[in-house]
Simulated scan of single mutants.
Amino acid sequence: MDSHSPTSAAPPAAAETARYTYSPRLRWQPEVEEYFNTAYGRDHFARISEALAHPSCYSCIRVNTLKSSTDAVMHKLLDLVCKNELSAVINGLEVVELNGGDQSQEGCSLVHKCPYAGLENVLFVQGSGPHVLHYGSQPDQAVKEVVVSRKCAESVLRGAQVYVPGVLACSSHVEKGDKVAVSVAIEQPVKEDGWAVGITRGTVLQGLQSDAHYEERKGLYIGQGTAAMSRSAIFRVPHGIAVEMTERVYKLPSFNDVLEGEIFLQNLPSVVTARVLDPQSGERILDMCAAPGGKTTAIAILMRDEGEVVALDRSHNKIVMVFHGLLQ
């Protein structure tokens, strides 16, 4: 993944706006790009690449039908939205409950049912983005920044905070309470024909164009927040929130502790996988790559809790994740 490069010098205000805009593009190996250009056509493949570089603007929720129903969960989510307990991070969206699938009403439906047959236990929660965020730095003040890993950035764009293990680099002199810009490290090609981030955890960011990691913050900015601890603490402690996000380029609600046990946040392809398997009551199912447990629990629910699911993964920590999912 790469960032767009400006073609000419821009005024300071415009340069800052461009820097703090989420504007990535995918960079393919030449032979792979040529293959897909031939298969899809250059214009079509360019649109596919553009879409793949941006996260989804909705969250997919699977309802635990052993504990609740899709309609009941939908009404609970709408109630939370109306009380501003779920939609605080979503701007400009009007909540409309759809009747009979009619989407002609004004406004944007924030919560709606999956329209595909066989997926009646799935709900979509709408978000928004990308948004242009202004850091608001002063000419005589250095911008304080944090660079995070790709997996951390994916979670942030889905509504999570920045946790300590996901931080790779940070500006010097960052203290608790400071405003920081958050960007994601770019994976770059390396000599061994592979890809690597090329940034060592604990790197000090200089904030200058001469900094080796300047481009990573320039084109893959994901938001801004408040440092929950100092730079020294971020690289000293093993756990905890490093940055509490206040603005994101993509705004989606966080479902942490929301209707726990009644809903599971899960990507639609994973939901479809369990449905296509079509597990039946009394069967014995082997899930060989089970963490974090989404498909494992989906299979168990489809079996109506009658049968056996053997969940395996490669590490103890991953199995613990599955166990916590099952406890819900």
Rank of each mutant, 00 (worst) to 15 (best):
V320P: 00
G194R: 06
N37K: 11
S210T: 14
T296E: 00
M288E: 08
C108Q: 08
L208N: 15
E175W: 08
A242W: 00
S69P: 03
A169W: 00
D278A: 15
L312Y: 05
H213S: 05
V204M: 13
V190K: 12
A46T: 13
H316Q: 14
Q328E: 14
E215G: 09
L52Q: 12
S155P: 01
M321P: 00
I61P: 00
R47T: 09
L286H: 03
F36V: 01
S183M: 06
G219Q: 02
V249T: 04
K144I: 05
L52W: 10
L220C: 09
L78C: 08
V125N: 01
N84W: 13
I61V: 14
D305S: 14
Q328R: 15
V164F: 03
C170P: 01
L208S: 14
A14G: 03
S230E: 07
V243I: 15
I222L: 05
P12D: 04
E216Y: 12
Y20P: 02
V249M: 02
V147F: 08
T21R: 10
V96M: 09
C108L: 09
A14V: 14
R231D: 00
L205N: 01
Q206E: 15
M321T: 05
E145L: 06
E106R: 13
L66T: 15
K191S: 12
C57G: 08
Q138K: 15
D278W: 10
K295S: 03
H131D: 07
K113L: 13
R47G: 05
D211T: 06
D211F: 03
Y40D: 04
V258Y: 02
H4P: 01
L26K: 04
C60E: 12
R217V: 05
V95R: 05
T226M: 09
V184F: 01
L66M: 14
R42L: 10
N37A: 09
A228G: 06
C170F: 02
S69V: 06
A13D: 12
